[in-house]
Simulated assay, not measured.
Amino acid sequence: MTPKSTNLANFKVGVDNVIFSVDMAQNRVLVLLVMRQGDPFSGQWSLPGTLVRQGESLEAAAYRILAEKIRFKNIYLEQLYTFGGPDRDPRESPDCFGVRYLSVSYFALVRFEEAQLIADGVTGIAWYPLERVPELAFDHHQILEYGYQRLRNKLEYSPVAFDVLPETFTLGDLYQLYTSVLGENFSDYSNFRTRLLKLGFLSDTGVKVSRGAGRPASLYRFNSESFALLKDKPMVFI
């Protein structure tokens, strides 16, 4: 058996952002994709990404990519996972002294109604519904799948939804966001409503709104102080 090389890998570090939004008008989850303009994978769709600059933190690189691609007011961002397989980037040299490309991925959620795409210098940038995502460059399908699972998990135990909802919202608005991401069978509306109100981290504003036929709906506001008492409990929301 040939002994493994003891030479240390020479890494370049990149950041790839999985930027999600929820179009509640059409009940669909969207991901932001850009078209690559250079090799490798020129002309192919990918997640927005960049190589980390000298003296730049990983988080700063993630925010830089966000600022270059999209204008937003509210966003949730967290580090997702590090992808570093030895064959994930075709630019890697086959010899042991070649450069390896490592991707530190970030997961983001933005408010669809407020997000504005920036097309300057970009031949292709678009929101894609998850069920219509085209073939992606590198291992970005794997990164996207990992990010979508994180989004689903975060909805179950964290207040991430309130980072992209308006300051005041109806319980119907909140339920629609959850069904868009988790599917309509995750919970019926009555049980969802009862559980959330019982937990006590939603404050009734006393204001009601009418949307079409039916009874006016109450507007609520997320109470972060009340939620802090529940943050370590699993499956808070559903």
Rank of each mutant, 00 (worst) to 15 (best):
F169I: 00
N74Q: 13
E68M: 07
L66V: 04
F227I: 03
I65Q: 05
Q142A: 13
D23E: 02
E225P: 01
E114D: 07
R88P: 01
R64D: 12
Q149K: 13
V209F: 12
Y178V: 08
A108I: 13
V15T: 03
G200R: 01
P90H: 00
S57A: 08
I75R: 04
I238E: 13
G85I: 10
P234M: 04
Q116S: 14
L130F: 11
N223K: 00
S21W: 04
P129Q: 11
S158V: 05
P90Q: 02
D39L: 12
L151N: 00
Y175D: 06
G43C: 06
L230W: 01
D173P: 00
A67S: 13
E68N: 06
Y146T: 12
A161V: 11
Q79Y: 11
V15M: 05
Y101D: 03
R215Y: 12
L199T: 03
P86K: 02
G43D: 07
G124E: 05
P134G: 04
R36T: 09
T2P: 15
Y76S: 06
Q142I: 14
L136E: 00
H140L: 06
R193P: 04
P86C: 03
L136T: 00
A61N: 04
Q37Y: 08
A60L: 10
L109R: 00
F237L: 08
G84C: 14
P90E: 05
L117P: 08
K231V: 08
G183H: 10
S42P: 05
D173R: 03
R88A: 12
K73M: 07
K233S: 13
L51W: 08
G121R: 01
N10S: 09
Y146M: 13
G206L: 03
K198P: 00
T82G: 04
L196K: 02
E68K: 07
F227Y: 12
S21G: 10
V110R: 07
F169W: 01
P48E: 02
L144Q: 04
G98E: 10
H140W: 07
A60K: 09
E225W: 00
R100Y: 09
S5A: 11
D120Y: 07
E59Y: 02
S21K: 02
C96S: 15
L174W: 03
R91V: 08
R211K: 15
G98S: 07
E56V: 05
L102V: 15
S46L: 05
D173W: 03
A67R: 13
G49P: 02
R211S: 14
T50V: 11
L33V: 08
I65M: 06
D23M: 01
K73E: 14
G55F: 00
M24T: 10
V104Q: 13
F227A: 01
V13I: 11
G172E: 13
S103M: 06
N17P: 11
F186W: 02
D39N: 15
R152F: 04
G124S: 01
F97H: 15
R152E: 15
Q54A: 10
E167S: 14
R211I: 15
P40Q: 12
N191P: 10
V13H: 11
V236P: 05
S93Y: 06
P40Y: 14
E184T: 14
P166G: 10
Q79G: 13
I19H: 03
Y189N: 01
L109V: 02
A115E: 00
R152N: 10
E59D: 11
L165F: 01
D139C: 12
